[in-house]
């Protein structure tokens, strides 16, 4: 099956690039990982520090980063380990925080239909927020998401994340006041940038406005982590049910 971009924007330069050159694609992916690694590093270290502080062993701390590999849910997990909560509740909470990945998987699955199923399901282990967002950025650029590019992006992010858990667990107690360094708030700043990256998409502003409003309302009423799923569903539903002059109509016409 040939690869088709979801949102054809001008595909600059893509004629000159050889997407079959695995090494070059891998390196292009690695270059894209640099800002992600920087933005996530303080968070990875903070996680390692807090996990040990909440009573996890160094081994358990690293295991969690290596197997769950999802920052927000790891934070929720270690928070709950400290309290006396039933194991199944803990697993459910991790599931709730990570439920958004179902949507990532559906979207990235579309962009990687040209991979074999096995490759896709191995690669999607690495489908964290920035991995998904960067892959969608590449789709928006009119370039194919090749496996080499995807793994070039994924592996540095993953390896640094696991290493940071270890470093944070071993040496995190040495940092007297991590908040002063802004450790806890760098990811929201980075995520805001990713939101902006998609501003050329149809219905971007209404989707962002609705998701922001609903997620804030849900945060203060239903509580965390449900505000993520509730806010996201609200924005997505808006796009799905937008009246005829919107994106749905455009796409209907294109398919007709």
């Amino acid at each position: 099956m040939t690869w088709q971009p979801c949102c054809p924007i001008e595909s600059t330069m893509s004629e000159k690039i050889d997407f079959n050159d695995t090494g070059a694609e891998f390196r292009r992916g690695m270059r894209r990982s640099i800002p992600v690694v920087i933005a996530a590093a303080p968070f990875g270290l903070l996680y390692g520090t807090l996990a040990v502080g909440n009573g996890l062993t160094v081994g358990e701390t690293v295991l969690m980063s290596a197997t769950i590999y999802a920052g927000a849910s790891q934070m929720v997990g270690i928070e709950l380990f400290g309290q006396n909560i039933a194991p199944w509740m803990l697993v459910m909470s991790i599931f709730a925080v990570n439920f958004r990945h179902v949507l990532y998987s559906a979207v990235s699955g579309r962009a990687t239909r040209h991979w074999s199923r096995l490759k896709r399901y191995l690669a999607f282990f690495f489908l964290v927020d920035p991995q998904f967002a960067e892959a969608e950025r590449r789709v928006a650029e009119g370039r194919p998401v090749t496996l080499a590019w995807y793994m070039g992006l994924a592996l540095p992010i993953y390896l640094f994340w696991v290493a940071e858990a270890l470093v944070g667990a071993l040496f995190g107690q040495l940092i007297p006041n991590p908040e002063a360094l802004g450790f806890d708030f760098l990811l929201p700043i980075y995520f805001l940038g990713l939101v902006m990256e998609f501003r050329d998409r149809p219905l971007w502003l209404p989707v962002v406005a609705v998701s922001a409003t609903v997620s804030i309302a849900a945060y203060y009423t239903v509580g965390s982590p449900w505000h993520v799923s509730i806010g996201a569903v609200a924005g997505i539903a808006l796009a799905a049910f937008w009246p005829s002059q919107g994106a749905a109509r455009e796409l209907e016409e294109r398919q007709a």
Binding site: V107, V207, V208, S211, S215, A240
Partner: peptide, 23 residues
């Protein structure tokens, strides 16, 4: 097409919820 439109909205919708409440 409506599913397609919904999927196109996923990045902005989800990433927004990771920023707005903490802001």
């Amino acid at each position: 097409p409506r599913v397609e439109a919904a999927l196109n909205a996923v990045p902005a919708a989800v990433l927004t919820t990771l920023v707005a409440p903490v802001a």
